[in-house]
Amino acid sequence: MNITTRTTTQGLIITVHDTRVDAAVAIEFKEAVRTEAAGGTGKVILDLSQVTFLDSSGLGAVVAIMKLLGKERPLELAGLTPPVAKVFRLTRMDSVFTIHDSLPDNLKAVG
């Protein structure tokens, strides 16, 4: 699972570079994000702008990550492509997450 992280004044940005978050990688994805976020504080923003396919296993992994992080470290999402946004909408999980159209400009500039 190819992910990178950047620490900004707004929180930790985790960018997923794989195009698929599906059953084949859901567990690996969860573990990779957990490792990257370990020990930090503050908000975590998951940048999904390169992900063009996410199934219910991938969705489950995102929810599991949110639970792992706990309420002290809220998980927000950014850059959902249309197929990914559709899964969040169909399952009404778009009501659970703060979703940014893209990474806020002040986050792009920092780090």
Partner: peptide, 24 residues
């Protein structure tokens, strides 16, 4: 049915697959 979503207490991690299939 869709699993119950009632954050922050009830946030399901699964049970979405058949709902997605039935919707589409």
């Amino acid at each position: 049915d869709l699993p119950v979503i009632d954050p922050p207490i009830e946030i399901p991690e699964g049970g979405f697959g058949w709902h997605i299939i039935r919707c589409l």
